[in-house]
Structure formats: structure tokens, C-alpha cells
């Protein structure tokens, strides 16, 4: 009896078809890529400056933070969860990292290393708590991370007494706007994170079990895997990425304020959803998330170049999010993935 259950379970969690191995999934990502391409063509023809090296590197810089947060969000959404706390956590990680970074008389290299450790550590702790609390008590992550949204924001304000931290080491500051062949270094960091996430999700047993949990939690449990471990891991990974995003924020803008990042969680969720990941979990890729982040970034930039008003811009962004989900619905029916 138990053996039978186990076989059924391992069948259900054979998720190769969902994780970037099958032609169908590649086709799906290609579809999102095509949408991005159409947008790029549209803006290139419609505006004078869109397809210039400078503007491209601007867009890449502008999407970097959202992309890093969205990669973490992909892990969480794939297991059928959601993380509403990343914006607040970004502020908390930034002020903790920023405090370390401004310790007087510390050599730059050590200061940056310690600050990164502190920022990522803060993210890991918050993410761990998100995952552990929701898994241990079986609570919806929506509510737990809503709680963390307030805890992290309050903590950021408490730590800094609501003050902005500034004057980071000049070389750290310069790093934030460094380019290699016209590509921002911070974006390259984000790309490396995307590559690692892609590998983990599609090439490892760990990644496949995350998909499995999103598809059929019970089956994974019956197959003898600890749900607790995988859930906590997904949220902790998301938290660690928030810490990295916080360091990028500080390198780019040379400040750390407890009120930054308000609403960033929604931008990250939008990128993941536009990238074709299902909010129900179990379906989607991190490559899709990369494309989704590019689409939101290209839209934000292109619509300004187009001379559209701020209010129209906001409306169009909303329309695109809804369209993406509708298209996804049809895609699911047509291709079965």
C-alpha cells in the first residue's frame, strides 16, 4: 500500500516537463521573449533614443534590483507561496548593511565584505522566519509575510531612528555605476544569480522537488520528503537575494534609508507573473522571470521616451500585468504547460 503511494508520488513529482527540459517549456519562454522583442521593435521605431547603447545600459541598471528580487520571488511562487515582505526587508537589509559600511576607519574591502555578510545575513534570518513560521504552523505565506512586511519596516526604522545613512566609501559607490563593455556590472551580478537559480531549479533534485511541492504538496510529502525543509529553503533563498539587492541599491544610490523599497514586492511579483510563472505554483522558469523583468523595465523606459504622461504609464503597466495572465491561461490550454 505504502509502496504504491510512493510510486504514484514519484510519478507526480516527475516534473521534467515543467522545468525547462521539454521543447514545450522552451516554446513558452520563447513566447515571452517574442513579446519582449515586439516591445523593443515598437519602441525602437517609435522613439529616437530607445535603441542606443546608453539607453540599453540604463534599462539594464534600472531593472537590476527588481530582477534580483524577482529571482527570489520565483522560488517562493513556484512552491505556491508569496512573499509580500521583500520591499521592507530590502530597507532593513540596507540599513543594517549601511551601518556596517559606515563604521569609521575600516578598510574598504573589509567594510564591504562585512556589510554584505550583514545584509545577506539579515535577509536570510527574515526569510527563514517567513518560511519556518508558515510551514511549522501551516499558515498561508500571504499572512506571515504581511506580518514580516511590518516587522522588517519597523526594525529598519528602529535601527536607524528613522534617519538616512549616507557617505559610503567612494570606491564602493563607483562600483555601483561600473560598466564592462557598456553593460552595468550590477546587472552582470544579477545575471549570474539568474544562471545559478536556473541551474538549481532545473538541474537539481532540490529544484525539482520545489516544482513538485507547487504541483502536489501531498505527493511530495508521501514520497518521504520534508516539506518543512523545502519551504523554509525557498523563503530563505528569497531572503538572501533581498540582502544582495540591498547591497546593489546602496552601491547605486549611495544611501540607505529605512523608507526605501515600498511596493517593490509588487514589482517583483509582476515580473514573475509576466514571465509566465503560475501564481498557483509548480509552473514557470527563472528565464521567464528574467524576460518578465525586462518587459517591465522596457515598458517603464520606453513609455517615458514616448512622452506618455505618468498616469497613462501607470495604467498601461496595469493592463500589461492582466494581459500576461490572460495569455498565460490560453497558453496553458494550447500547450498543456
Amino acid at each position: 500500500m505504502q509502496a504504491l503511494e510512493k510510486t504514484q508520488a514519484s510519478e507526480t513529482i516527475d516534473t521534467r516537463r515543467l522545468t525547462g527540459w521539454s521543447p514545450k517549456v522552451l516554446l513558452r519562454d520563447a513566447g515571452i521573449g517574442l513579446a519582449l522583442l515586439l516591445l523593443i521593435v515598437f519602441f525602437s521605431l517609435g522613439t529616437e533614443h530607445f535603441l542606443t547603447p546608453n539607453n540599453i545600459s540604463n534599462i539594464l541598471t534600472q531593472i537590476t534590483i527588481n530582477l534580483i528580487l524577482a529571482v527570489g520571488m520565483t522560488f517562493v511562487i513556484l512552491i505556491g507561496g508569496i512573499d509580500l515582505s521583500v520591499g521592507s526587508m530590502l530597507a532593513f537589509c540596507a540599513v543594517v548593511g549601511g551601518t556596517v559600511l559606515t563604521i569609521p576607519d575600516l578598510p574598504v574591502f573589509q567594510a564591504v565584505a562585512l556589510a554584505t555578510l550583514a545584509a545577506v545575513g539579515t535577509g536570510v534570518v527574515c526569510g527563514f522566519l517567513n518560511g519556518w513560521i508558515s510551514a511549522f504552523w501551516g499558515l498561508p505565506s500571504f499572512i506571515v509575510t504581511l506580518g514580516m512586511l511590518n516587522i522588517a519596516r519597523g526594525a529598519a526604522l528602529q535601527v536607524t531612528d528613522a534617519r538616512t545613512i549616507y557617505s559610503f566609501p567612494p570606491s564602493f559607490n563607483a562600483f555601483g555605476s561600473q560598466m564592462i563593455f557598456g553593460i552595468p556590472v550590477v546587472f552582470l551580478i544579477a545575471l549570474v544569480l539568474v544562471a545559478i537559480a536556473w541551474f538549481v531549479l532545473s538541474k537539481t533534485v532540490f529544484g525539482r522537488l520545489l516544482y513538485g511541492i507547487g504541483n502536489n504538496e501531498e505527493a511530495v510529502r508521501l514520497a518521504g520528503h520534508s516539506l518543512m525543509f523545502y519551504k523554509v529553503a525557498a523563503f530563505t533563498i528569497a531572503g538572501a537575494l533581498v540582502g544582495i539587492a540591498a547591497m546593489v541599491y546602496m552601491a547605486r544610490l549611495n544611501i540607505a534609508s529605512p523608507i526605501i523599497g515600498i511596493g517593490f514586492e509588487l514589482n517583483a511579483i509582476a515580473a514573475v507573473i509576466i514571465g509566465g510563472t503560475s501564481l498557483n505554483g509548480g509552473r514557470g522558469t527563472v528565464i521567464g522571470t528574467l524576460l518578465g523583468a525586462c518587459i517591465t523595465g522596457v515598458l517603464a523606459n520606453g513609455l517615458i521616451l514616448f512622452g506618455l504622461s505618468d498616469f497613462m504609464r501607470q495604467m498601461i503597466t496595469g493592463v500589461v500585468i492582466i494581459l500576461a495572465v490572460i495569455i498565460d491561461k490560453y497558453r496553458e490550454r494550447l500547450t498543456g504547460v
Binding site: N58, I65, I260, A300, I304, L305
Partner: peptide, 23 residues
């Protein structure tokens, strides 16, 4: 030449202004 909101925010101002400068 142009007037846009960045909602009082540093990061948003950075992105919006970079794009304005391109245009």
C-alpha cells in the same frame, strides 16, 4: 523640456531621470 513624478523617491528619481536624459 519635461516634468514627471518620482514620488519623492531616490531610486525612482534615478531611473526616471536617466530615461529623461536619454530622451
Amino acid at each position: 523640456l519635461d516634468s514627471r513624478t518620482a514620488h519623492w523617491e531616490t531610486e525612482e528619481a534615478n531611473a526616471v531621470f536617466s530615461t529623461m536624459l536619454t530622451a
